[in-house]
Simulated scan of single mutants.
Amino acid sequence: MTRVIISPGKYIQGNGELKNLHEHIHSLGNKILILASENGIKRTRATIEESFKGSNIDLVFEPFNGECSRNEIDRLGEVLKSNNCDVVVGVGGGKIFDTAKAVAYYNDVPVVIVPTIASTDAPTSALSVIYTEEGEFSEYLLLPKNPEVVLVDTSIVSKAPARLLAAGIGDALATYFEARACIRSNANTMAGGKATKAAFAIAELCYETLLNDGLKAKLAVENKTSTKAVENIVEANTYLSGIGFESCGLAAAHAIHNGFTILEESHDLYHGEKVAFGTLVQLVLENSPIDEIEEVINFCLEIGLPVTLEDMGIKEIKEDDIMKVAELACAEGETIYNMPFEVKPEDVYSAILGADSLGRLYK
């Protein structure tokens, strides 16, 4: 049995670290394509340019069009080639990271990830989630290696909307429970083998950190401040969750998230918000003890994460729509088949409605 744990080449986190970007990545190449939203470019360009001032490295800033789709990946690949860039830096959030990683992969250049929010565990992984132009889940792109560098400037992250940090907490919330399911089923992980004890310990530490510091961190970020709790949650959302999910595996929670992408009502929710509800559905699906379900529901309520279908934007529950979610969650190749028992769309349908009933009870 082969056990594998993988991680980025270097993880850097600290207050004001963006100004040290050159120091951490100057050896990777001579011309850097920096991918960010238009607003992200406005917010970070001056600091990045100052970091590279006096060096012989050229910078090319290119706005991201908003969706990690095949068309956007191809477009940015052409931008990279036409400018002779030999490094990609993704600055911003999850879809930008996934796009940057895919562009780097298809053009065989290094990739650097610079989160300005802590809303997903995408930064550290050797994985890109590809969507259609309409925002529906399309496929996982498994990459041969993790990013060379992940750099998190917590002074920037703490100034982002608190809802984004909460969404990251929702994404990280699934890590331990999906890891546990994969270990019970002896599933292969995205790292290319079975889970290591180290990776599962990281997944457990991720959950403990969320419970201990999640609410404190959210309150601090609502006041645009960075405390030790914020530092701990940024690490949990980004690094602990990233290593935990990739080297232990995904299961039902993320598959159920993918299922909900088919419903237009939930398109306004962030990835981690949908994953949080998917976690609750997974716990119902595996008939977890009520005290564990209570702990998760109460934590989600504290953080402001969805626990009902109404929270997911679904004001009117339609049987056909929920079954579509369940069927997409059970699509061929989905991670729901890492659960330690057989799962059918009808089971997921029932678990979604069961989770909704529990959520409404505790609200």
Results as ranks from 00 to 15, higher is better:
185 S>K: 07
185 S>Y: 06
185 S>V: 13
187 A>L: 03
188 N>I: 12
189 T>H: 00
190 M>P: 10
194 K>T: 03
194 K>C: 13
194 K>N: 05
194 K>G: 09
195 A>Y: 00
195 A>W: 01
195 A>M: 08
196 T>F: 05
196 T>H: 09
197 K>L: 13
199 A>M: 05
200 F>M: 01
201 A>F: 10
201 A>L: 14
203 A>F: 00
204 E>P: 05
205 L>F: 15
207 Y>N: 06
208 E>A: 09
208 E>P: 04
208 E>V: 08
209 T>Y: 09
212 N>F: 15
212 N>W: 15
213 D>K: 11
213 D>H: 15
214 G>Y: 06
214 G>M: 03
215 L>D: 14
216 K>Q: 10
217 A>T: 09
217 A>H: 01
217 A>L: 11
219 L>Q: 15
219 L>N: 11
220 A>D: 15
221 V>F: 14
223 N>C: 13
224 K>Q: 14
225 T>Q: 09
226 S>T: 08
227 T>G: 03
228 K>P: 10
231 E>L: 11
231 E>D: 13
231 E>Q: 15
231 E>V: 10
232 N>D: 13
232 N>R: 14
233 I>M: 01
233 I>C: 01
234 V>T: 02
235 E>D: 14
235 E>W: 07
236 A>P: 10
238 T>R: 13
238 T>W: 09
240 L>S: 06
240 L>F: 07
241 S>Q: 04
241 S>L: 12
242 G>E: 07
243 I>D: 00
244 G>Q: 00
246 E>L: 07
247 S>V: 03
248 C>G: 01
249 G>R: 01
249 G>A: 02
249 G>D: 06
250 L>W: 03
251 A>K: 02
251 A>S: 14
252 A>S: 11
254 H>N: 08
254 H>M: 13
255 A>L: 07
256 I>T: 08
257 H>S: 08
259 G>R: 09
262 I>Y: 08
262 I>W: 11
262 I>L: 11
263 L>W: 10
265 E>D: 14
265 E>R: 03
265 E>Y: 02
266 S>I: 00
266 S>A: 12
266 S>P: 00
267 H>E: 08
268 D>I: 03
269 L>W: 01
270 Y>S: 12
272 G>F: 00
272 G>M: 00
276 A>N: 01
276 A>D: 01
276 A>F: 00
277 F>M: 04
277 F>G: 05
278 G>N: 08
279 T>F: 05
281 V>K: 04
281 V>N: 08
282 Q>K: 08
287 N>S: 14
288 S>C: 12
288 S>M: 06
289 P>L: 02
289 P>Y: 04
292 E>W: 10
293 I>R: 11
294 E>T: 13
295 E>K: 15
296 V>T: 12
297 I>L: 02
299 F>M: 11
300 C>E: 12
301 L>T: 11
302 E>W: 01
302 E>Q: 11
303 I>G: 05
304 G>T: 07
304 G>H: 06
306 P>Y: 03
306 P>T: 02
307 V>I: 06
309 L>G: 08
309 L>M: 11
310 E>T: 07
311 D>H: 09
315 K>I: 13
315 K>P: 15
316 E>L: 12
318 K>N: 14
319 E>H: 14
320 D>K: 07
321 D>W: 08
321 D>N: 15
323 M>C: 06
324 K>G: 10
